[in-house]
Amino acid sequence: MHRRGFLAAGLATVLVSQRAIAQMKMDDMPGMDMGGHAGHDMGEAPQSTVVLPEGKVLRDLPRLANEAGTPGLFKAKLTAQRASVRFAEGLDTPILGYNGTSPGPLIEAVEGDRVEITFANRIPEETSTIHWHGMPVPADQDGNPMYPVATGADRTYSFDLPEGSAGSYWYHPHPHGKTAEQVYRGLAGAFVVKPKIDPIPAEYGDTVLVFTDLRLAADGTMPDNTMTDLMNGRVGDHVLVNGQKNPRLAVPFGTKRRFRLYNATNARFLRLSFDQASMMIIGTDGGLLEAPVAADEILLSPAERLELIVSFDKPGPATLYT
């Protein structure tokens, strides 16, 4: 992680990268853009000419409903299946999705809860699993390649969330030889474990931003990997936030907002910086920090998560660059 300026007194000035590949704009009321122009520099795959719509209102991720009627128990079902999404006007893109969506449903539970999630693998001719990335769960419940779930089969993952486990986690498949492909085709979702008593003021909200990237062929399909992709990891042509390019979010001037940032890309490193807003890091992959630190720029690696409090204390739009 890039740490220059993190320990400076107060809130540091945001430095915007010259190689900005995604952006998020915030007006004091009219909105915020997230995700944006992206270009991979792997050298083999041609740059996509597909144009994605931009500037729509940021959508909330769908929440996975708790089917249990018992306090302290979270019970639900996640299905990995083929689905179709319209990223670009007039083009249907075949994807893989949890419960038909990508990113998958947001899971919210509380430390101390018992979790029982039934996974249904409906991907034709492929095994899959659900790996609870970063969560303190038993090895035989963590969806590793040793426990594949066959096509058409179900498997229930059961585990307890211990006290002190509150934090920002995510879930994705982890089958042998297919993990990267199943992730970039759409199988990824956020899992938030809430503390019983949250020290962050409720009025800051709790906004989840899942960053993914996307490569599309002219017909809207996802092209196969190139040899460079196989060696170095696949980097898409479009950076998306909650499945959208450059969405906007209205934020009142003079307020603070809590964001949970997830890098759910296959291989892209995100360099994050705000202009016209100040950010404090309050948490990382392991949960909340003992004390917040000021940041002017952050490097978020694939699979990494970060919690921020952003202060919108300057008039006009604010932009998050990555």
Score class of each variant (00 low, 15 high):
L216W: 01
E126H: 10
M146E: 14
G10L: 12
M26F: 12
Q182V: 00
V85T: 13
P138Y: 03
I298C: 10
K56M: 07
P247G: 09
Q47S: 11
A250S: 11
N225D: 13
R4Y: 12
L106M: 06
R234F: 05
N66I: 04
I197V: 15
G287V: 02
N121W: 00
A139C: 02
L320P: 01
E163Y: 11
M135T: 10
G104V: 01
Y321P: 00
D219S: 02
G236M: 01
P94L: 07
S48N: 06
R4L: 13
D41P: 04
L306V: 13
A318E: 00
G39S: 15
A250D: 08
Y171K: 05
P30W: 09
N144M: 12
A303P: 02
T129F: 01
R114W: 10
R155Y: 14
L61V: 01
V251H: 06
K194S: 09
E116A: 14
A295Y: 01
K75F: 03
H238W: 10
F259Y: 12
M146K: 14
H176A: 15
R19D: 15
L306E: 05
R19L: 15
T228H: 14
V192H: 11
M32F: 12
V57A: 13
L91N: 04
L270D: 00
G205Q: 06
L161T: 01
R122Y: 03
N263H: 07
K75Y: 05
T226H: 05
V239C: 06
L261N: 03
E163W: 06
P136D: 09
A318H: 04
A120H: 14
E307G: 07
E67K: 14
P62T: 04
A20F: 11
H133C: 15
F253I: 11
D219N: 09
F274W: 14
D142K: 04
T319Y: 06
P103W: 01
K178Q: 13
A22N: 08
P252S: 10
R86A: 15
G316I: 07
T226M: 04
P62D: 03
